[in-house]
């Protein structure tokens, strides 16, 4: 079995990632709005989520947090600056006319700066990468970077929600591009995993078009 299992959630096509630390122990990153497919994978593989890491507080990344926590008693990690966004989930779901509601999660660990947590012998690095939201984080495990919506296309609806900050996002791009080698894998919140060097090349082309790179 691969160390990383990707589950694509419903209408927002949001990625939930399950990282197997040391079977049956695992970490769930961004459990989205659809609990059933996540539950099925956990049950089929007899996995026990020790921790849930939320890259940010948008509803499509935290929709199933409460259900997993209740089922497995997992520890939930979220940046403190995204707590308000997290608590606004049902408001956003309502005004965006999704017809959905979630059980708003209560994080156990509020992240405030870059940190490393050891989960069943695995070092889980939390790197603050604000911009998409004030509390957006990238989760690094070895050479894998779970970036949430940091690399989401600028024109995406969720980049028009309050809390988005273009300048901070640019700094986060630079932080990632200058800190990690090109062969690291990016596991984004939406879309397919890709090598960092490919994401970086796309970014540079886009930035050149906008006149941000000399």
């Amino acid at each position: 079995m691969e160390n990383v299992i990707q589950v694509v959630n419903g209408s927002y096509k949001q990625n939930t990632f399950i990282y197997i630390c040391n079977a049956p122990h695992c970490i769930v990153i961004d459990p989205g709005l659809d609990y059933d497919p996540i539950r099925k994978i956990l049950e089929d593989n007899n996995l026990q989520p020790e921790a849930i890491f939320c890259t940010h507080g948008h509803f499509d990344h935290i929709g199933s947090v409460s259900k997993i926590k209740q089922q497995y008693n997992s520890v939930v990690y979220l940046h403190s600056k995204d707590l308000k966004i997290c608590n606004s989930s049902n408001f956003l779901l309502k005004v965006l006319k999704t017809g959905l509601t979630i059980e708003t999660p209560i994080p156990d660990v509020l992240i405030s700066s870059d940190a490393v947590y050891q989960i069943r012998g695995v070092d889980v690095h939390v790197i603050c990468t604000p911009g998409h939201t004030p509390g957006s984080c990238t989760i690094r495990i070895g050479g894998l970077l779970f970036t949430g919506d940091t690399f989401l296309k600028t024109e995406n609806l969720k980049n028009q929600l309050p809390g988005y900050n273009e300048a901070e996002l640019q700094n986060s791009f630079i932080k990632i591009f200058t800190t990690y080698p090109g062969n690291f894998m990016i596991y984004p919140g939406h879309g397919k995993p890709e090598k960092l060097e490919v994401i970086k090349a796309e970014y540079l082309i886009a930035a050149e078009g906008k006149g941000k790179v000399n």
């Binding site: 308000k84 608590n87 606004s88 049902n90 408001f91 956003l92 309502k94 005004v95």
Partner: peptide
């Protein structure tokens, strides 16, 4: 003042 939490969303008539 928090207007967007679940208190507002669980009311019969939307405050909004």
């Amino acid at each position: 003042i928090v207007l967007t939490d679940d208190r507002a969303m669980t009311r019969e008539k939307s405050p909004f």
